[in-house]
Nucleic acid binder design. Sequence first.
DNA 1: CCCTTGACTATCT
DNA 2: GAGATAGCCAAGG
Length: 116
Amino acid sequence: MTAFQKSFDKSIWEVVSQIAVGRVMSYGEVARAAGYPRHARMVARAMSRSEEKLPWHRVVKSDRTIAFEVGSEPYKKQQALLLNEGVQLKEGKVIPITSDKNRELDEVLWGPSDDN
DNA sequence: CCCTTGACTATCT
DNA sequence: GAGATAGCCAAGG
């Protein structure tokens, strides 16, 4: 365990643990919030070293899809944890609860003119 | 040291 | 909008 990881992990874990239930953040966003811009990949590394208490499932890729290979066990595991918190996925993309912009509301309402 | 690897991202086709 | 490409940066061989 390098000195870098010791402080880095702590910062990352803190940010991730603060993610509200029903919401998600991308690896890049977490890295930025933790004070380590451009460290998205290292966030992922830190997650693998995480403890069970960490809500790691609330961290997804910048395009809002789960980072693991579709259909893999880790993928299904993360998806199950998200669904359990009320975060649904549409076409592999998580539907954000954060309706800051009135546009997501359209998604939350399951798109009137779209499929599904 | 140099090269490869990632639970990644932004950009261009 | 999906696929390819180039950055990204620490870790491990």
